[in-house]
Write a protein that binds this DNA or RNA. Structure first.
Lengths: 136, 136
DNA sequence: GTTGACCTTACCCTGAGGGCAAGCTTTAGC
DNA sequence: GCTAAAGCTTGCCCTCAGGGTAAGGTCAAC
């Protein structure tokens, strides 16, 4: 038995092993993150351990909030032996700034909303500081 | 000249006054937040001061991150003289919890990403702690 | 041989709009 | 009065990262 063939798995197995869904894996292939997977005679996609590793990479990057386009760039650098870590760090810092900005926006919302909620009695009366605050 | 008619404005004027876009205003009407606007003989939408106030309310609520569905509920309470401020506060606190959770998720991403970025030299070498971290 | 689990593609759906096209209306300038 | 520009209308497709479902082919166990 061929040890290379032995490690091939179908998309469902790949999904289980990576924590992705089969739908996501097909989507990433469609989006160009992965090369087109090899197929069985019946048309089933097959993944080897290297491709599973790439899927794991994508999963981690998505968990950190990178967009598909950003992951495409990251994968390009990952595969490029002539990359510089400077390029990778730049990409990461761009994304870090996006995250920080979103956090700031949400915290601003949270602050205002908390103030409104704190000033609302929350009783049976119709008078409501939250509605008043939205009306301004 | 009729003082009631005098205050009617077209969608472009309404957009300017509320800080929304004409597209958003049509979208809110389509989504059922607003009653269908009255039209001129030529089919142009017309808004009176009360409707402008409602648009302002929607704008404020969107700024605080409420979804269209949530705003629909808020507007229902706003228009209901028999509302209780308890209902409004409950809606607000549900949304507040959503915001807090998103902030927590983003801060977790930020933390991990910052650690990775900090441990990456960012130099000319291909070795990169960020890529290593994503590969795990 | 049949049942159930797995795979395939293709299509529509999400939220909150943006962008564009084609055509009608109103307004401003001359 | 004419014309050009600006404003309005509807309708359609696009975003992002997938989820859901349908219709149909395939594989393994019993």
């Amino acid at each position: 038995m061929n040890t290379l063939v032995k490690t091939l798995v179908t998309i469902g197995q790949a999904a289980k092993q990576t924590g992705l869904s089969a739908k996501m894996i097909r989507y990433y292939e469609e989006a160009g993150l992965l090369l087109k997977a090899n197929r069985t005679d019946a048309g089933y996609r097959l993944y080897n351990s290297q491709q599973l590793q790439q899927l794991g990479f994508i999963k981690q990057a998505r968990t950190l909030g990178f967009s598909i386009a950003q992951i495409s760039s990251l994968l390009g650098l990952w595969r490029d032996p002539n990359r510089s870590s400077r390029e990778v760090k730049q990409l990461a810092e761009v994304h870090l700034d996006e995250i920080k900005q979103k956090v700031a926006e949400l915290q601003q919302m949270q602050k205002v909303l908390q103030q409104l909620a704190d000033s609302c009695c929350g009783d049976d009366q119709p008078q409501c500081a939250i509605l008043d605050g939205l009306q301004k």
